[in-house]
Simulated scan of single mutants.
Amino acid sequence: MNAAFSRTGKLRILVVEDEALVAMHLEDTLHALGHEVVATASRLPEALEAARTATFDAAIIDVNLDGQHSYDVADVLNERRIPFAFATGYGAAGLQERFRNTPTLAKPFMSSDLERILAQALGAGRAD
């Protein structure tokens, strides 16, 4: 499990989501759970930049960013050994085969769903 999470319970989270209302809901829910959103990216180029350079403990990644898949972001996070979960309305079955075991937050979601998925992402390490 992530050392920052086990010590304080507070995580620094990257949110990658192209729908403004969903991004705001994620941010509000993460804050309510006691976490900090360090960055929100809504398009693939900015998501890749944040994934490569920002300092955070975990990420929530929308699978589809304005018609582009976010798997390159997931690859960067895997390389950096940063836990993440996908967020999608299609479920894990809609993911590329190599990511089928990655924790996946089904949209729409409740606070308890997000909390559970974050715990899975942190506990799972990197599952490809």
Rank of each mutant, 00 (worst) to 15 (best):
residue 76 V to N: 04
residue 63 V to T: 13
residue 106 A to P: 05
residue 105 L to N: 03
residue 122 L to H: 01
residue 29 T to C: 13
residue 1 M to K: 15
residue 94 G to V: 09
residue 44 L to Y: 05
residue 45 P to F: 00
residue 76 V to Y: 03
residue 73 V to M: 06
residue 20 A to P: 13
residue 88 T to H: 00
residue 17 E to P: 09
residue 59 A to Q: 13
residue 56 F to D: 04
residue 105 L to V: 08
residue 58 A to W: 12
residue 33 L to F: 02
residue 30 L to W: 01
residue 17 E to Y: 02
residue 124 A to Y: 11
residue 62 D to T: 05
residue 51 A to E: 07
residue 120 Q to V: 03
residue 71 Y to Q: 02
residue 118 L to V: 08
residue 83 P to D: 06
residue 27 E to T: 05
residue 69 H to T: 14
residue 20 A to Y: 02
residue 22 V to C: 02
residue 118 L to K: 06
residue 45 P to I: 04
residue 58 A to Q: 13
residue 75 D to C: 04
residue 68 Q to H: 09
residue 15 V to E: 04
residue 66 D to E: 02
residue 10 K to S: 12
residue 25 H to F: 15
residue 114 L to M: 00
residue 99 F to E: 15
residue 47 A to Y: 01
residue 42 S to G: 15
residue 10 K to L: 12
residue 64 N to F: 07
residue 108 P to N: 06
residue 128 D to N: 15
residue 71 Y to S: 13
residue 6 S to E: 08
residue 50 A to Y: 11
residue 7 R to I: 14
residue 33 L to M: 08
residue 114 L to R: 01
residue 99 F to L: 15
residue 124 A to R: 10
residue 6 S to A: 13
residue 98 R to N: 12
residue 32 A to F: 01
residue 80 R to N: 12
residue 100 R to L: 12
residue 8 T to K: 10
residue 124 A to V: 07
residue 58 A to V: 11
residue 3 A to F: 07
residue 118 L to N: 10
residue 77 L to V: 06
residue 91 G to Y: 06
residue 71 Y to R: 15
residue 24 M to C: 10
residue 126 R to E: 15
residue 124 A to Q: 07
residue 63 V to S: 09
residue 42 S to P: 15
residue 107 K to N: 09
residue 12 R to V: 09
residue 15 V to M: 07
residue 22 V to S: 06
residue 118 L to D: 02
residue 8 T to S: 15
residue 89 G to A: 06
residue 57 D to N: 04
residue 66 D to H: 11
residue 17 E to M: 05
residue 13 I to E: 02
residue 21 L to S: 10
residue 90 Y to H: 08
residue 70 S to W: 00
residue 107 K to Y: 04
residue 45 P to Q: 07
residue 18 D to Y: 00
residue 71 Y to N: 11
residue 113 D to Y: 04
residue 14 L to G: 00
residue 107 K to V: 10
residue 111 S to E: 15
residue 19 E to M: 07
residue 39 A to V: 14
